[in-house]
Lab assay of single mutants.
Amino acid sequence: MRVFPVYAPKLIVKHARIFLTGVIWVKDLGRLEFEKGRFLLPRKSLPKVKQAILELNELIEAQN
């Protein structure tokens, strides 16, 4: 598990694309899981977490 002390979308996306499957922890967002290079949306999450995951997945799609 990698810990990101700040929310840096480009760096987080780079990590997810390299490792494809895993878990990261982002300060103020908490634990985020990714599989096959995409972030998974938890069943229950705060609106800011949901927005961050959608933003990260959009960045991943834009890079493909």
Rank of each mutant, 00 (worst) to 15 (best):
K27C: 13
P42Y: 08
L46E: 08
R17A: 14
K36C: 08
K14V: 08
L41H: 14
K50W: 06
I53K: 00
L56A: 00
V6F: 13
K27G: 15
V23Y: 10
R17C: 05
P42I: 05
K27N: 15
F39M: 03
E35V: 12
A62D: 10
A16R: 00
K14W: 07
R31F: 10
P42R: 06
V3Y: 15
L54C: 08
P9C: 03
P5S: 09
L29D: 01
V13I: 09
V26C: 04
P9G: 03
L11H: 08
L29P: 00
F39T: 02
V26G: 00
I60C: 05
P5W: 15
V49F: 06
Y7A: 02
A52W: 03
L54T: 11
V6S: 05
R31T: 07
F19L: 07
R2F: 15
G37P: 00
L32K: 00
L11S: 12
L32Y: 05
T21D: 13
W25Q: 06
L54I: 14
K48D: 07
F19N: 15
E58Y: 09
N64M: 11
P47L: 11
I60Q: 04
P5T: 08
I53A: 06
V6N: 07
P9D: 03
V26Q: 01
R2Y: 15
D28I: 04
I60Y: 07
D28E: 09
R2L: 15
F39D: 00
L40Y: 06
Y7H: 03
V6H: 11
V49Y: 10
F39I: 03
G22E: 01
T21Q: 14
K36Y: 10
P9I: 04
I12Y: 01
I12W: 00
K14Q: 13
Q51Y: 09
K48I: 08
H15E: 04
F4T: 01
I24F: 05
H15Q: 04
K14R: 13
I24Y: 02
V23M: 09
K48S: 09
K10F: 14
L56N: 02
V6R: 06
K36I: 05
K10S: 14
Q51P: 04
A52C: 05
K27H: 15
P47D: 08
W25F: 09
S45A: 11
